[in-house]
Design a protein around this nucleic acid. Sequence first.
DNA 1: AAAACATACAAGAACGTTCCAATACATAGG
DNA 2: CCTATGTATTGGAACGTTCTTGTATGTTTT
Lengths: 338, 338
Amino acid sequence: MTIKDVAQHCGVSVSTVSRVLNKHPDVSERVRSKVMRAVEELHYVPNSSARDLVCAASDAVGLVVRGVGNPFFLDVFHAVESTIAEAGYTMFVQNIHPGEDELRAGAQLVRSKKLRGLILLGGCFDYNADDVALLDVPFVCCSYTNSFGNLDEKAYSSVTIDDRAEAHRAVHYLVKNGHRRIAVLLESTDDRSISELRYMGYRQALEENGIAFDEALVLQTRGYGMDAAYDAVCEALKKELSFSALFCISDSMAVAAMKALHDAGRSVPKDCSVIAIDGIEMSAYSIPTLTTLSQPKHEMGEMSVRLLLDMIEGHTANRHVVLETEPRRGGSVCRICD
Amino acid sequence: MTIKDVAQHCGVSVSTVSRVLNKHPDVSERVRSKVMRAVEELHYVPNSSARDLVCAASDAVGLVVRGVGNPFFLDVFHAVESTIAEAGYTMFVQNIHPGEDELRAGAQLVRSKKLRGLILLGGCFDYNADDVALLDVPFVCCSYTNSFGNLDEKAYSSVTIDDRAEAHRAVHYLVKNGHRRIAVLLESTDDRSISELRYMGYRQALEENGIAFDEALVLQTRGYGMDAAYDAVCEALKKELSFSALFCISDSMAVAAMKALHDAGRSVPKDCSVIAIDGIEMSAYSIPTLTTLSQPKHEMGEMSVRLLLDMIEGHTANRHVVLETEPRRGGSVCRICD
DNA sequence: AAAACATACAAGAACGTTCCAATACATAGG
DNA sequence: CCTATGTATTGGAACGTTCTTGTATGTTTT
């Protein structure tokens, strides 16, 4: 069932059918309706490979995401998807498995599908100029750590929160509430990831408030999973580590941490306050409700698409947008008086 | 950058390059390495549109999913994705927005991309034979309500749990623990959805145990969201509705319900037991841990792919696989003695 | 040494679409 | 009536692959 069949079926040429389908002018109403009817009857659907092949520039952009499992990314994903669809573009999603290189995978995708641009969602930007040069389309990094300056900032756009500052804000909030023994639950302190950035904010907040840093209060997990977070907190408690508050680098890890505290007989927030950054739906229904700095997930996705399309359509140069979180005050933090 | 450029660059013909890339025999080692080097140097990536156009049958299948937001589907999605990739197929994902018709969207996708098959994930199967005939590739329904018999079962494969029986099992478990005033939290009782099936199991379990059905104990929400579930339970409590146990049709709704109970000063499970079906990761970290019938999410995704590929490759006829849940005993249900 | 055969490569059709150039046919201006 | 101008339609090239068929070159067989 090709455009040729449709053409034959109603005795016109292939080009005419093509023009009807693409809503070109210069086609009489009589022919137009005849063609449309035939398309309906024959259930004809254009072959997108053929179309893409002949069209120099597609209207497709790519979304490369590392680890779709994360509930935070899911929300951003949603926003990206709907914004792109609204703008009349289509989207190719490429899920990156651990060990794969997202930029290289993105470059492949771009060449293979003739994409107009790329959105990189979540991860760590640790590339050199060569990698980027390979990718000759505009791209925007959403929720990426790009603060390590290993790449010319003119080469791309980005949408992030200021991870370091937001972590600082969270920890500072704990300090203001009288906490001085503040532990941190994170995945890594030196992989140039978001985890490291938030760790830097933690360190800085301690320092500015004249609190000595204690290595023992850094609870490091293997991966971002809830099980790892749970285990890490359990272990810390078993070692009788004392802390009155816990800063978690993600909501889901915080929920697991609260569970671990609860299972060990500690009450949140009475025995230990918990604060995090993310603002996923689930953590609003934890007991107690998690106090967290909620990332503007929808806005981040929307903004990423807008920046990308602006670059593609040549309206603007690249931009680096830093959004702010919105504090969601739950019941997981309380004031202590020494 | 096309195959032609590569050919010119190393002074061979287009066909030779093609044969190198497709690992055909009949090409000398000397030429092979020369071509490979050129491919590397020029960063040549084959244009997939051109390839798909000329290849009669692609190795792609489609995944049509309604509402990617659901954490349960996310897990299945994961399993589907990796199984398909492992089998050497590629996957097109189509997210269906409310109001869109998944079968029609699937048919479009199939024709447009020359897909070999389709997996429909989550939703309600309410189609007639015409719709299905349009879709002339094999398809499998995963986690679908297909028990209403409105379609010839020979036309497709399916992977489900027995929603009615599993709901029965959950409610029966509550009864065995002494509960007789058992409420149900659901989205709908008559839309042929999974919600309705589980509601049927609830009704049946009550009946078999000689418990009179009380309309007031049916807490209906608007949609599957946690906010709706929370509100519905709050309202029931405000009306001083009395029940010693609550059966929820999904884990996320159960987590929201437990929060509502907690906020109203009721303790789970002492004042009210809660049980659900799904087994998402998050509900293992609720307080108390949710008692739930955990769906074999990974197995469901894997099995769906296997059934589909079997049908595509003609090894087997269609099959309808019903998997069993695995009970996860948390702390949200307790025995009561009247 | 001629014939038969294998091997390594080239030429070109085909896939289904878009779009430019060409054509046919009106309609109007002189 | 012949030429300009416009409108509706057609023909065919082009997109970048794959794959079949064809052709040189060298190698074995008789």
